[in-house]
Design a binder for these strands. Structure first.
Length: 267
DNA sequence: GGGTGATGCTGAG
DNA sequence: TCAGCCTCACCCC
């Protein structure tokens, strides 16, 4: 159940483990049998991430495109991996490393033009901030063309790629922006602040391997409870960490959104 | 051991 | 707008 920082972590991990190696691929579940046979025995050139999408480039084959969706999960093993479960969609082995993929919403081989089409419909990725196409200017121009609430716009992957439901609530809170503000009515400084907050949050998540947005928060390892380490996400029936006002919750863009009506006043 | 919600997205209507 | 996908971890017996 990953947001963009997790996808980029996977890209780094999988590149470390398998890039430059000849990879053995299987599909125990069978749904990707033909694709696995196609890449089996080929050298992995590189792994790229954009937003929540992963692309694995193989020598003399199409690229492998993976999107984890809500359920998808990777597991990596250095040595002596457990046998893959029957539901494992794809196994990748090389140089003593093993990677299992289960439950992805997309696992397919794509020609270069199809990969480009996927990238073309994605917005800028905060984890690539400053590179071509991944700038606050592109983000701003995407927002300027939309009248939907900003709380819906930041979940739209064609507006900004990699932000999911946790970062939506947390980034809008830290930026002090009401989720109900129309996307095209944000001021230049609000847009700049929101982009900067997303960059910082995703980079911290990438570095630490988990989402902690509250400054100097001590979060215990293991499963998260009651929005620990977060300002508003899933903090139902709790008070705002900043102003002690109530944390509000509602559905927006088919997902649950949390915010503080005091710290994020209507624009 | 069953029920359920979850960090997502697509496509039918 | 909303059902469907399809897996896992957590909660409550």
């Amino acid at each position: 159940m990953p947001e963009g920082h997790v996808i980029h972590r996977y890209a780094l991990d999988h590149r470390d483990r398998l890039a430059g190696r000849v990879v053995r691929a299987t599909s125990p579940q069978g749904r990707f049998g033909a694709g696995a046979r196609r890449i089996d025995g080929r050298k992995l050139i590189d792994v790229d991430a954009h937003g929540k999408h992963l692309f694995y480039r193989f020598e003399r084959a199409e690229a492998l495109h993976v999107h984890l969706g809500l359920y998808g999960k990777f597991r990596s093993f250095d040595a002596k991996p457990p046998p893959p479960t029957p539901a494992t969609r794809l196994t990748l082995l090389g140089g003593g490393n093993t990677i299992y993929l289960a439950g992805p919403s997309v696992c397919e081989l794509v020609e270069p033009w199809a990969e480009q089409a996927i990238l073309d419909r994605l917005g800028p990725d905060p984890l690539k901030s400053g590179t071509e196409g991944n700038t606050v200017e592109v983000f701003a121009s995407n927002l300027a063309r939309r009248r939907i609430p900003i709380g819906a716009a930041v979940l739209d992957q064609s507006v900004i790629a990699g932000v999911g439901n946790i970062f939506r609530s947390e980034a809008l809170f830290v930026a002090g922006i009401s989720p109900h503000t129309p996307a095209n009515s944000l001021t230049d400084s609000e847009v700049a602040e929101l982009w900067a907050v997303c960059v910082t949050m995703l980079e911290k998540g990438l570095a630490e391997g988990r989402i902690v947005t509250v400054a100097r928060s001590r979060v215990r390892p293991g499963p998260r409870r009651n929005g620990a380490g977060l300002y508003v996400y899933q903090r139902d029936q709790q008070i705002c960490r900043r102003c002690n006002g109530p944390v509000s919750r509602e559905e927006m863009a088919n997902r649950t959104l949390w915010w503080c009506g005091v710290c994020q006043p209507p624009g």
